[in-house]
Structure formats: C-alpha cells, structure tokens
Amino acid sequence: MPEHPDQAPAQPVPPSVWRNPWHFIAFGFGAGTLPKAPGTWGSLVALPFIPLWQLLPDWGYWLMLGLTMLFGVWLCGKVADDLRVHDHEGIVWDEMVGMWITLWLVPEGWGWLLVGFLVFRILDILKPWPIRWIDRHVHGGVGIMLDDILAGVFAWLVMQLLVWGWSVQAVI
C-alpha cells in the first residue's frame, strides 16, 4: 500500500540509485529503495544528522537548512528529470530536509527526536492545506521540495509549542 493515500502503487527502484551519486543522495543514501514507506525511511535516515546540526550555532543550523533546501530543489529536480518521473516515491531528500526543519531549535535528546519524527510524518502523510495543493500543482524540484518544506515548517511550529509548553510546565 502506498505511503500517501492518493499515491500510485510502488514504483520500481531504478538501478541508477546504486551507480549515480546524485541518485544515491536523492534516494536518502539508499533508504528510498526500501519497498514499504520510503518517505518514513528517509525521515529516519535524517535523524542521526540532527545531533550534528545541533552542535552548530542557531544561525549555522539555519544556514544549513537554507543550503540543503536549495540543493534539494536542484537535486530532486535533476533526479526526477533523469528518471522521467515527476516525483518518484524513492526520492526522499525532501523528507530528510523536512525532518531537519522540524527539529530546528528543539532541545537535544532522543525523546524530542521521536516526537518530531511522529509530528512530521503525520503532517507529511496527511498533507493538510496548503501542502496537498502544492503537492498536486507545483512541479519540478521546487514542487518536490516545497510540500515537505511546508510540512517541516508546520511540524516545527507544533514542536515549538510543545517545547514552550514543556518549559512552562517545568517552571510551575
């Protein structure tokens, strides 16, 4: 069953994932080749990077997000063009960046990573407005990236509310 309810059945894994470094990166270092829920696997692959990004100053993490988003627009567009598929479900770089957005300015710790992962996956799968509209109407690298960037921003807002609530409760 596809990860997104309105998505077509699983697409075959192109052999180029194992030969072309751009395809390998776009497919989440191979995570996007897994037969079930590639977006979820891609989101999981993003998690080990978070403790590294959290070592950066806040502006450094923000800069990293900007660079990975811009790189993702090019990368996802290129790989989609190479594969002649609008948004191959195995391309998971967009989910990785969405996870990194979700967890910006969130406290360190595996508990926060788990909550962020769940919040992001729920929003990425359900695609509330305007995410679903963008997913259906914006194409190319921008379209592939933008719905997950927005899901990441929405998930980031939820996470910031949870962090704020947690810190208020700790004071009381």
Rank of each mutant, 00 (worst) to 15 (best):
M1A: 11
P2R: 05
E3S: 05
E3R: 04
E3Q: 10
E3Y: 06
D6G: 08
A8Y: 13
A8K: 10
P9D: 09
P9H: 05
P14Q: 05
P14A: 06
P15R: 06
S16D: 15
N20G: 04
P21C: 12
W22R: 08
H23V: 15
H23W: 06
I25L: 13
F27A: 14
F29A: 14
F29G: 14
G32R: 11
G32D: 02
T33S: 10
L34G: 10
K36S: 07
K36I: 13
K36C: 11
A37N: 12
A37V: 14
P38M: 07
P38Y: 13
G39F: 02
T40Y: 13
W41Q: 02
G42D: 11
G42V: 15
L44H: 03
V45E: 08
V45M: 09
A46L: 09
L47Q: 06
P51F: 14
L52W: 08
L52N: 08
W53H: 07
Q54F: 11
L55I: 07
P57I: 07
P57Q: 13
P57S: 15
P57N: 10
D58Q: 14
D58A: 15
G60L: 04
W62F: 09
W62N: 04
L63V: 12
L63G: 10
L65A: 11
L67W: 06
L67E: 02
T68G: 11
T68M: 15
L70V: 03
F71N: 13
G72C: 10
W74L: 04
W74Q: 02
L75Q: 14
C76R: 14
G77N: 04
K78T: 11
V79Y: 03
D82H: 15
L83F: 04
V85R: 01
H86P: 15
D87C: 01
H88W: 01
V92L: 04
V92W: 01
W93L: 03
W93N: 00
D94H: 07
E95D: 14
G98E: 07
W100H: 10
W100L: 15
I101Q: 01
T102C: 02
T102S: 01
L103M: 09
L103W: 04
L105Q: 09
V106A: 06
E108G: 04
E108H: 08
G109A: 05
G109E: 12
G109N: 03
L113H: 04
L114E: 05
V115I: 12
G116Q: 02
F117S: 00
F117C: 00
L118E: 02
V119C: 05
I122P: 01
L123V: 08
D124M: 03
L126M: 07
K127H: 02
K127N: 04
I131S: 06
I134R: 05
D135H: 15
H137N: 14
G141N: 11
G141T: 14
V142E: 06
V142W: 06
G143A: 08
D148N: 10
D148K: 01
L150M: 05
A151M: 02
A151I: 01
A151Q: 01
V153P: 00
F154R: 00
Q160M: 11
L161H: 03
V163N: 00
V163Y: 01
V163H: 00
W164A: 08
W166Y: 12
Q169H: 09
A170D: 03
V171T: 14
I172R: 15
I172V: 15
